[in-house]
Write a protein that binds this DNA or RNA. Structure first.
Length: 492
RNA sequence: CGGGAGGUAGUUCAGCCCGGUAGAAUACGUGGUUUGGGACCACGGGGUCGCAGGUUCGAAUCCUGUCCUCCCGACCA
């Protein structure tokens, strides 16, 4: 028993860490707040990235790459955005080291190599991108400009957690420019839909689409739309954001275009992003006390075959049959691994692949061959059943689809059961403490009330859901009149 | 950035209070027996005790500084 997992009931935080580390998604590093994404974790991210990348391209976007460094003068051009990120920036001030005359074999920053202008390591790329767009946009014919980049960004977080909040993380950021406000808003909403589609249909994590309140809005945005998901401990996780930036950045960076009437106008902008944080969402939405549970559509391995045999002769027979099955599975495009490593015994392998969340395990032994069957175990429900070797690939293929659906349904039931209306303050506090999840409650619409509620309960307004039903009510805190409920939750 | 805990073999940890030159389990290597839920026997390899200073005849152990991790808080995706 080398890899014990802390149970969720015992210590949810530790359980999460155990899954990430022991599931081999990531490792700690020698750099404060930065993690190493291990091959298995990176394969997962690559699958997520590739699926989204295709969706971005299908909606007309192109990839490009902009610099890691942002000159301070550019960074501060859009004031609100700059202020919003100012407290968490890493800054390059020098460009050279030299040997330390006082300490043999050590290096020191060369004081004579100070940069004339500091470089900010991008916490997000609006500044450098809008500075660039200025040169790319002259006429309405240059619009819309639909660009995405996959990159790393740095936000100097005080308290970090694997995948959920690290000082450096991987993400994609889309930055688009449009000739009308309506078109930019439509783009913002379209990308929100793309995110929701991806997270629900590929990651099997249900989301709530909504709009952020002013205090939760992206610095520099007119409106911030988001998808919010719910973790098993009842805390919400912002899983993606899409911003309508109005003309804020166009004005800050002087990006104008000539419209059809030959008049100069500032362009309308959007930006949208999701990050490796999604991996954290995946872990916490589906995992159990045995380890990770990965949805088949993005799992690095969809099936693993574990052979069982006594002696070389049986081994050869089982190997041969396994190879046939693998060929059939691969023909259906299934990502399968054959683990015939003789050093680990079957029981060890079972536990190992459960830890790593592989959706389907196929156990193939001499006994099974006699009966022309294999034992198929599904990770999500842990059910095991013997399945005829005839048509086994098709069976696995269907099972993968079923697991994908079951994971989503299960997470959705949990989520739906954890959206609870509250009409009194007592009820509100009690629900937060005892049940968790989203609390649907009336709010008077002021930032002051939102802040007071946050101070009292640590709950924030996660979003105002799209197509939110309008109803008259009274604010949960102040009793002032309210036209709609909003979703509160404690969040990551 | 504040409070708490921790860092000793690949891993989990003991040793530290009371200073004398490092141990267990597991993992790893070889050989053999095994294989349907984390196998067993035998032999073997492996650690400048996070790092840097200091005290001392002598430091994993005492002191100072520093780095990294975890938990709680403030801040934030």
């Amino acid at each position: 028993m080398s890899k014990e997992i802390t149970s969720r009931a015992q210590d949810y935080s530790q359980w999460y860490n155990d899954l990430v580390i022991k599931g081999e998604l990531a490792d700690y590093s020698a750099v404060r707040g930065c993690m190493v994404i291990k091959p298995y974790g990176f394969a997962l991210w690559e699958n997520m990235r590739d699926a989204m990348d295709k969706m971005f391209k299908d909606t007309g976007h192109q990839n490009a790459y902009f610099p890691l460094f942002v000159p301070k003068s550019l960074f501060e051009a859009e004031e609100k955005n700059a202020e919003g990120f100012a407290k968490e920036c890493a800054i390059v001030t020098h460009y050279r080291l030299k040997t330390d005359p006082d300490k043999k074999g050590k290096l020191m920053v060369d004081p004579e190599a100070k940069l004339e202008e500091e470089l900010i390591i991008r916490p997000t790329s609006e500044a450098i991108i809008w500075n660039t767009y200025k040169g790319w946009i002259q006429s309405y014919r240059d619009l819309p400009l639909l660009i995405n980049q996959w990159c790393n960004v740095v936000r100097w977080e005080m308290r970090t957690r694997l995948f959920l909040r690290t000082a450096e993380f991987l993400w994609q950021e889309g930055h688009t420019a449009h000739s009308t406000s309506e078109e930019a808003v439509a783009e913002t909403r379209q990308m929100l839909d793309v995110y929701a589609d991806f997270v629900e249909n590929w990651m099997a994590v249900p989301v709530i689409k909504g709009v952020k309140t002013e205090s939760e809005r992206f610095a520099g945005a007119v409106d911030t739309y988001c998808i919010e998901s719910l973790m098993q401990d009842g805390k919400a996780l912002q899983s993606g954001t899409s911003h309508f930036l109005g003309q804020n950045f166009a004005k800050a960076f002087d990006v104008k275009f000539l419209n059809k009437e030959n008049q100069l106008e500032h362009v309308w902008a959007t930006s949208w992003g999701v990050s490796t944080r999604l991996v954290g969402a995946l872990v916490m939405a589906h995992g159990d006390d045995q380890g990770l549970i990965l949805p088949p559509r993005i799992a690095p391995l969809q099936a693993v075959i574990v052979p069982i045999y006594k002696g070389d002769q049986q081994k050869a027979t089982v190997d041969a049959k396994a190879k046939e099955i693998i060929k059939q599975l691969k023909e259906l495009g299934i990502r399968v691994k054959y683990d015939n490593n003789d050093n680990a015994r079957p029981g060890w392998k079972f536990a190992e692949y459960e830890m790593k969340g592989v959706p389907v395990r196929i156990t193939l032994g001499a006994r099974d061959l006699e009966n022309n069957v294999a034992e198929i175990a599904r990770r999500d429900t842990k059910e095991k059943r013997n399945v005829s070797l005839d048509g086994i690939a098709a069976y696995v293929n269907e099972l993968l689809a079923e697991i994908q659906k079951n994971l989503f349904d299960r997470a959705k039931s949990f989520r739906d059961e954890h959206i609870t209306p509250a009409d009194t303050w007592n009820e509100f506090e009690k629900l937060l403490d005892e049940k968790g999840g989203f609390i649907s409650a009336h709010w008077d619409g002021t930032a002051e009330t939102e802040e007071t509620i946050k101070e009292k309960t640590k709950a924030t307004i996660r979003c105002i859901p799209l197509n939110n039903p309008q109803e008259d009510g009274k604010c949960i805190l102040t009793g002032k009149s309210s036209k709609q409920r909003v979703l509160f939750a404690r969040a990551y």
